[in-house]
Structures are given as C-alpha cells and as structure tokens.
Design a binder for these strands. Structure first.
Ligand SMILES: [Zn+2]
Ligand SMILES: [Zn+2]
Ligand SMILES: [Zn+2]
Ligand SMILES: [Zn+2]
Lengths: 160, 160
DNA sequence: TTCGGTATTGATATGTTATAACATATCTAC
DNA sequence: GTAGATATGTTATAACATATCAATACCGAA
C-alpha cells in the first residue's frame, strides 16, 4: 500500500492483503472469522470510506440475506474489538483497519468533509504526547479517539 | 479555576465566570444569548459531565417547559458553533467549554469511564503535531476531535 | 461417537439520538 | 408600521443501537 489511502494505490491488493492478515491473525489467535464476519470485513474493505451499520445491512440485503440490525452490529463488534476495523465516532460509522498487523493500536483518522474519504494514520508521534500530558494530570488513558475533519488532497485541488 | 476539572475547585465561581464570559462575548459579537440558550448553558455548566440532548430536555421538562427535541438541539448548535460548548463524539453528548475566552479552539477531552467526568485540556501541544502531520499528507485540518477514555485521578485511587 | 457447554446466529421488539418540515412568534432595520 | 431575518413551537420521522430469547453450530471431553 502506498503512503496513505488518499493516494492512488493497488486497492485490490489492499483488500487482499487485509483479508489475508485477518485470516492469519484469527487462525493464530483462535478467533473465528465466520462467513458473516468475513463478508462484513470485505464490505468495509471495498472503499476507504466509513460505512454505517445500516449501509452494511443494505448491502447484505442486496445479496439476498434478510439481515437485521444485530447481524451488522455483532460482526462490527467482533471486527472492532479485535482491531480489524475501527469505529469513527464523528460519523457513527465503521471502517476497515489499514494496519491490522499491528494488533491493538491508537489510530488517528482524517475525514474529508467533501468526499467522505477516511484515511488512517499510523503511529502519530503526537498522540504519545497527549497520553503523557494526560498522565501528568493524573488521568490514565486506556483508549483514544482522534479524528481530524477537513479537506483531502484531491478535494483541496478541486475547490481551492 | 484550578488546573483542571478533575480537581476540587470553586464550582459556583466556575459557573458564574463561564456565564459572564458567554454574556460578554455575545454582547461583543452581536450574538443573542436568549433565555433558552442561556438556560441550556446553565444546565451544562452544573456539572463537569457531558449531557445528552435528551438529558437536557428532561431537565427543561422538569422545570415546566414542554420542550421537544429541536429545542435542545437548536440551543446546543448555537452553543457549540460559537464555542460555548463542545460535543463529545464518543458519548453523543455535550459539555460546557471551560475555556470560552479563547474563542474557537481545538480542545481535547479526557473522559472517565467510571464516573463519567469529562475534563477539557487547554492547548495540547501534541495536537499541533497532529495537524502538521496531516498537512504533510496533504490534508487540511479544519476541525478536530480528540477524546481520551480512561480513569480519572479519583477513580484510579478508588480502584487501583 | 455422543454429550454438554459455549459461541454464534435468527428474529422481534424496543431504546436512543438527531433532523425534516412547516407554522408562528419575536426582533431589527428601514 | 412594515419587511426581512432570526428564533421558537410542534409534529413527525429518520438514523443509530441494544435487549431479549430461541435455535443452531461448533468444539473439546468423556
Ligand atoms: Zn486501498
Ligand atoms: Zn475529499
Ligand atoms: Zn467547575
Ligand atoms: Zn472517574
């Protein structure tokens, strides 16, 4: 994969590699990547955008499944809790992790307000600063949600 | 106000000063801090916790107003868009700004998962790092949401 | 292999958060 | 006072998420 999801990249390879990683990690860790969970991950991987649970349900329904809300939420819970996907709080939506090899990590997201694209950044040095800043105040960070909203490179050029 | 909201402080003064600041800024900027907006801000200021729109509606109803959802959301939109309150994405809830003098700013929040207290930190150096990191990727940050979840000082001591 | 516990799925109902749409009231400027 | 803009009242509905319980699939131990 190229530097980040805002730039052109071999997206079929991007999907295949994420799926392969998920299968390998599940096998290694004794997790069950069932058909439903895998299908939801595939749906998330199709685009570098965040999908709502009901978007996923709509896709499943289009494939003939009569999927009800718990179906999507259960699969998403599995994927999120094991680090194969993330929840974007600002959008009430979900996106496949682009760094599933790293296991649990503290991602940061850039959300384009124009085209809805979402890119995940790797290990933002900055975040370590935040965590230690919190520690100085006596607060023990367990999870973080860092989401930046703005214009992606393509949309910046299109409407400067 | 003391260093942050996790520690004891003169909360009546905390409320009064935030209200005074809001009134002053609205006067200076030609904004209308109407009775409803002011009341919602007062409700938010009562505690250093985030309240959902429907929590606010319940308080308004308890005071005799038959307030419907748009009443809360409109007041919250006003308060948030002018920097008197913030939305906590992770909680789908709202909290009064503790730094209303600074006008628009990029806050970071620490959310205690045990007691639901929320503290706002001032100008986290770290965040500047995130923004410049995004810039390097060609992404123009316009808004940010930085929310840390964990245990506040009091809850850390209570259950170590 | 069969049993029994655990994890997953199916299905229905409900809870929670947020906005659309349109009417009415209030304020401000002319 | 009238007109335009802003704010509020009111109803309905969209969008997001979970509770509950029954049925089935899976997996290791007897
Ligand atoms: Zn890709
Ligand atoms: Zn874009
Ligand atoms: Zn206070
Ligand atoms: Zn606490």
């Amino acid at each position: 994969m190229s530097q980040n999801q805002f730039h052109d990249h071999d997206h079929q390879g991007c999907i295949a590699s994420a799926l392969a990683t998920a299968e390998a990690r599940c096998a290694a860790e004794g997790l069950r990547l069932t058909a439903q969970r895998k299908r939801v991950l595939e749906i998330l991987l199709e685009e570098h955008r965040a999908l709502g649970a009901y978007d996923i349900l709509a896709r499943l329904s289009a494939e003939g499944q009569n999927a009800q809300p718990p179906v999507a939420y259960r699969a998403l819970d599995f994927l999120v809790s094991h680090g194969f996907a993330h929840r974007i709080e600002r959008l009430n939506a979900y996106i496949a992790c682009t760094l599933p090899n790293e296991g649990a990590h503290m991602p940061a997201f850039m959300i384009c307000r124009n085209c809805d694209m979402v890119a995940e950044t790797g290990r933002p040095e900055a975040e370590l600063g935040l965590v230690s800043e919190a520690k100085n105040l006596g607060f023990a960070v367990e999870r973080s949600s860092v989401e930046l909203e703005g214009l992606c490179p393509a949309c910046r050029e299109a409407r400067p």
